[in-house]
Nucleic acid binder design. Sequence first.
RNA 1: GCUCGGGUAGCUCAGCUGGUAGAGCAGCGGACUUUUAAUCCGUUGGUCCUGGGUUCGAGUCCCAGCCCGAGUACCA
Length: 514
Amino acid sequence: MTPFPFLPDHNDLIETRYRKAEAMREAGIEPYPAKAEAGDTAAEVLARAEVLMESGDVVSLLGRVMGVRSFGKAAFFHLRDRTGQVQVYIKKNIVTEECFRLYKEFLDGGDLVHVTGRLFRTKTGELTVEAAELRIAAKAVRQLPEKWHGFRDVESRYRQRYVDLIANPAVAETFRARSRAISAMRRFLDAGGFMEVETPMMQAIYGGAAARPFVTHHNALDMRLYLRIAPELFLKRLLVGGLDRVYEINRNFRNEGISTQHNPEFTMLELYAGGWNADRMMGFVEDILREAAMGALGGTRAVFGDLEMDFADPVPRVRMVDAVSEALGAEVDWDTPLERLRELAGELPEEVRTPDEAIVHVFEERCEEKLQQPTFVHDFPKSLSPLAKSVEGRPEVADRFELYIAGMEIANGYSELNDPREQYERFLEQAERRKAGDEEATAEVDEDYVRALEYGMVPAAGLGIGVDRLAMVLTNSPSIRDVILFPLLRTAKREEHADSPSSVEETANGGSTG
RNA sequence: GCUCGGGUAGCUCAGCUGGUAGAGCAGCGGACUUUUAAUCCGUUGGUCCUGGGUUCGAGUCCCAGCCCGAGUACCA
């Protein structure tokens, strides 16, 4: 029996280090001291190295001990903080006896320490802090993965992202780049007069996209709620209210399969601009993506696998029917009869019942993956775009576009439908489709949204950018899980003492619809 | 959901036609005051994902299940 509670994966390596922490306490050293001193950063120290060596000023660093190389009466290690790392040299005849004892008896790789000392250059030329003082900042009782082969097991990397971030510096850089891309887009939007807003993620009626939702329940109100599949209908209510330059960067939730391009919760930048149309919005997409690339990469060129692209280049625009015509080797349009399309395509799945569906199907099957370089596809079937306005003079064509990069849909935008009567009809059609068994059609008509349109909504264009997929492209990450810090995984296997009370089960079951 | 691949020490991985479970690194003990995968000597460490089965004997073969990945399906 051990005197402390231990986790199920406790082992003797951890035991040894817990004992060490106890021994430190017995020696009068608190392994988890209350005081923390953020002094210099590694990056600053390296940047100011020449000045610091000249002046002999003492630097002060807080960070994690990496790669200890120890000798009898001296040692080197690297001290890593959020900005980088600096080598530290500790030598018996320089530091106090207590400090040397701390190193010799208690210090392990992975510990967080505070080091102060002067900067010098070793004979191999590396800038190094000669420790005058070494103090423990926080003891680590689990050892880090091996330095040479790293931490590769994908499942462990996702489940224990904290270890992944320490062990694989490229991973941390990916998330920094993602963050910089988002910051750059925010700056660009703010500078362009857009206002950031937050709209409900828990919605009584979900809409704005075609997807199955997650369902939850509010106890006090005894109310069924859906996690939003899109913020669109709320953002456009704001347009009615006169806030007609708005954006939101936040999570959407779609109860669908998981793949290298799909995570059940994902981040979307959605924005609306009064007085714009889809054409204007395409130009804006080019601008904001260039800003995102600049932020993430410091330049406009990006590499994704074998693909090289330059976000400074104008993005070509292709009509969907033209892309499909090329794929089929014959001119087709929205008014091409279904029979003719079936003939040209060879085979079409049973659920394809209209020319619109046939063209979209062929596009998805044969065209999407060929769109490697950034490309706008525009003019979508109106029937599959219930929130979009028609192209002038062509009521069957939606003034809508999607941006493809590396075969992935990265952005989607359109001129917003603001005719309340038409919108109501479209909603009713959706409800009919739902009744007919289309699980992705919106179940309930959002009457209040139609009411809002009845007050008059400024002509506007809207845009959604899949932030995770954009981050994939900018960071050359082949899976969406590489750009989401904590991607959804099945819960790790529970221990044998685990039992599930019925109340917990009820809650869990509320989220699944089959 | 389906197909394929994977799960062995803290980490990275070997383990053939079934025959007492291995390496490197880490850890632990020792030597070592400019190393950077430090070096040298010694050494501990295993629910081989789980549960059944076949067999004298299973990490290995069979069945069922769990988890991860890739592909596919789904995904205005």
